[in-house]
Each structure stands twice: as structure tokens, then as C-alpha cells.
Design a protein around this nucleic acid. Structure first.
Length: 92
DNA sequence: CTGCTGATTGTTGTG
DNA sequence: CACAACAATCAGCAG
């Protein structure tokens, strides 16, 4: 059962006052690194292809390949945790 | 207590 | 200027 692929164009939920954004996903770091690489191998590939290709290879990646990205994701999570703590501390 | 959904993050190219 | 697939992630809310 699909979780309804709704984009940011959907109904927004109420945002927090401090709004601790969110932690980047491993995919985000993955794109940052492969963004130029995939573009290099796919100069004619625009976002459409790039996005699909990237996602394809991403899943193709093993946990070892995602490791560096996961590490970054973990670190970013801590980053988010900090703003979250600050958000809760101030919001409290 | 448990789960679900909404919101967010980053990429680039195009209407 | 905002959004389009791609994946992940998490927090808050509702039953």
C-alpha cells in the first residue's frame, strides 16, 4: 500500500515555532557526491534522469557503499538533534 | 502502546 | 520561483 506519494505541494502541517528543519537523508549526501559524477557520465541527463539514475544506483549500493553516507546521515542527525534540543528548550 | 502521515533534506533543469 | 522523482528520516498526533 503506497503511502500516497504526495509532494511538497500537499497540505502542509503546522510548523513548529523554532522549526528544527530535519536531518538530511543519506541520499542527500549521496546526491551531493554523485551529483557531479552522474552528471559527468550523463551530461545529457537532467534532473529527471539524474534523479532516477541516482536512486537506482543508490539502492544498488550496499550498506558498505552507503556507509560513508550513513555516517554523514548519522552526524547530520546529531546536528538535527542539537537544533531539536534547542527548539524544545526554547519552545518549552 | 502502536502506527501512520506529513514535513523536510539535497540535486538540477525547465516552464 | 517552484516543482519534478529519488530515498531517508523523524517527530508529533491520533486511535
Amino acid at each position: 500500500m503506497p503511502k500516497v506519494a504526495k509532494t511538497k505541494s500537499g497540505g502542509r502541517k503546522k510548523k513548529d515555532e523554532n522549526a528544527p528543519k530535519r536531518c538530511l537523508s543519506a541520499y542527500m549526501f549521496f546526491s551531493q557526491e554523485y551529483r557531479g559524477k552522474v552528471k559527468k557520465e550523463n551530461p545529457a541527463a537532467t534532473f529527471g534522469e539524474l534523479g532516477k539514475i541516482l536512486g537506482e544506483m543508490w539502492k544498488s549500493m550496499t550498506d558498505e557503499q552507503k556507509k560513508p553516507f550513513n555516517l554523514k546521515a548519522e552526524k547530520d542527525k546529531k546536528r538535527y538533534e542539537t537544533e531539536k534540543a534547542n527548539y524544545q528548550a526554547t519552545a518549552a
